Computed example of a mutant assay.
Amino acid sequence: MSFRPGSRIFSSFRPFFRQGQADARRRASTAPGPGRFAGFWNSPIGPKTVHFWAPVMKWGMVLAGASDFSRPAESLSFTQNFALMCTGAIWTRWCFVIRPKNVALAAVNALVFAVGATQVGRIYLYNKSLETTEGQVKGEGKELEAELKATAQKAEKAIRS
């Protein structure tokens, strides 16, 4: 086997380009019947295994995180959403390492990462907007303080004269 990545890809797709019996196999695999369902039921990532039920249950996390999109950013937890983002990233990678590779679980974990990253971004932008408004308020406060001092000095002069 060659170490070139391209040769591995082409050699894995070689059976699809063979002539003759490929059409018969293709028709047999798409035919409806108990064989297809039994194959899914007994597969290594079928409903009898955790590889099937983990992504099904994890959709709840994606839906809960997506429902928080309507909440204001001030009521969201940065640490919780950051943990959600890291969990999604780590488990997405892990889904491609384990055997059998579980693409459905990897997709759900990628969406968990996306939801967490979106919420962390919203919280970050909200905190940045607070910092800029605090800076503006401090600047306006200094201006008002200077105006008040000037007004107080005018009032003292008016009282003395």
Rank of each mutant, 00 (worst) to 15 (best):
S2K: 00
R4L: 15
R4C: 10
P5C: 09
P5K: 07
R8P: 02
R8S: 13
R8L: 15
I9V: 14
P15V: 04
F16I: 10
F17M: 10
R18T: 15
Q19W: 14
D23C: 05
D23L: 14
A24M: 06
A24W: 03
R25Y: 09
R27P: 02
R27N: 12
S29E: 05
S29L: 13
P32T: 07
G33Y: 06
P34E: 10
G35Y: 03
G35C: 05
G35M: 07
F37W: 15
F37I: 15
A38Y: 06
G39N: 06
I45N: 11
I45R: 00
P47R: 03
P47F: 03
K48S: 12
A54P: 13
P55S: 07
V56N: 02
G60Y: 13
F69G: 09
S70C: 09
E74W: 03
F78W: 13
F78S: 06
T79S: 15
Q80Y: 12
A83N: 09
M85N: 05
C86A: 15
T87K: 01
C95P: 04
C95K: 00
C95T: 01
F96P: 00
V97E: 08
V103R: 07
A104L: 12
A104S: 12
L105E: 14
A106T: 01
A106S: 04
A110D: 02
A110L: 08
L111Y: 03
V112Q: 08
V112T: 08
V115H: 00
V115N: 00
G116Q: 04
Q119H: 13
Q119I: 15
G121C: 06
Y124Q: 08
L125T: 09
Y126W: 09
K128F: 05
S129Y: 01
S129R: 10
L130H: 01
T132D: 09
E134N: 12
Q136K: 15
K138S: 14
G141Y: 11
K142I: 09
L144K: 04
A146V: 02
E147D: 14
E147H: 07
A150L: 09
A150R: 11
A150T: 08
A152K: 13
Q153E: 13
K154Y: 01
K157Y: 02
K157C: 02
A158R: 12
I159H: 14
S161M: 11
S161T: 13
